[in-house]
């Protein structure tokens, strides 16, 4: 049996919101160390990897490995009913045919409950090598989101090139071209948190990526910062780390070639 309680239902809401345009259904694999989801889009261009650590839950218990096959349209409907500061308790018995959601307001004066039918999903898992990328860029997720939104109007392919001093995001369209260059910096955002751009380059890199997917993966609500890992001719990795050791949401995106 699985039972997990998240202090904020909004955490799961944001995750589902961020992936639902890429995947329509996926297996949540649950064991005593946490919950993992790995799923590709239908065109096998992008892969979503979610890891939620049991330690990041307020309460977590899973005595037997259990796979929950979830339809994201149904899950979105359920999560829409949670207020942002509600807590969320997930429950499933070993049969894995239903998932139960309980949302509870902070004051405990409102409790809502939903039961969702699960499905059997024949998923193909890929083994993702632990790659030491040539370029690691850490930046504000709001900045990354702004760059993707701005440049998406100009073309379908984003070229990202990085050297030791800067990273350049560029796009060439039929009638116009646009680019944004970022250099390492440190600024304070409106919450008085330090938001820095750091660029670590072992080897100069130049990759072409689908603008449509990048725009989907640029999501400032998931975490304050995002990490981009790049290397020539290797799928790029876009990574969001959740606070309080809850885990990570990774997007892998296959490059475009000539």
């Amino acid at each position: 049996m699985l039972e997990g309680r998240l202090t904020h239902a909004s955490t799961l809401k944001k995750i589902v919101e961020a992936v639902k345009d890429v995947i329509s259904e996926a297996n949540f694999d649950c064991n005593d160390s946490g919950i993992t989801l790995q799923c590709m889009d239908s065109g096998h261009v992008a892969l979503v990897l979610l890891q939620l650590n049991s330690d990041g839950f307020e309460d977590y218990r899973c005595d037997r490995n259990i796979t929950l096959g979830i339809n994201f349209a149904a899950l979105t409907k359920v999560l829409k009913c949670a207020a942002n500061d509600d807590s969320l308790t997930l429950k499933a018995d070993d049969s894995g045919d239903r998932l139960n959601f309980v949302f509870e307001s902070q004051k405990g004066d409102r409790v809502s409950e939903f039961d969702m039918k699960l499905m059997t999903i024949d998923a193909e898992l890929l083994s993702i090598p632990d790659n030491d990328y040539d370029v690691t860029i850490k930046m504000s997720s709001a900045e990354f989101s702004r760059i993707c939104k701005d440049l998406a109007n100009f073309g379908e392919t984003m070229n990202i090139s990085a050297d030791k001093e800067s990273v350049r995001f560029g796009v060439e369209g039929d009638v116009s071209a646009a680019s944004v260059v970022l250099r390492p910096n440190e600024t304070i955002d409106e919450d008085e948190k330090i938001v820095s751009t750091s660029i670590m380059v072992k080897k100069e890199t130049n990759v072409n990526l689908s603008m449509k997917f990048l725009k989907t993966f640029a999501n400032s609500s998931l975490a304050g910062s995002v990490t981009l890992e790049l290397q020539d001719d290797i799928p790029c990795l876009i990574k969001y780390v959740f606070p309080n050791d809850l885990g990570v949401l990774c997007f892998y995106l296959a490059p475009k070639g000539d």
């Binding site: 890929l126 083994s127 689908s210 799928p235 296959a254």
Partner: peptide
């Protein structure tokens, strides 16, 4: 135009 590659050519089946 650039051609979109698929992840299958980089990651093997587990």
């Amino acid at each position: 135009a650039k051609v979109q590659n698929r992840l299958d050519s980089y990651f093997k089946k587990a």
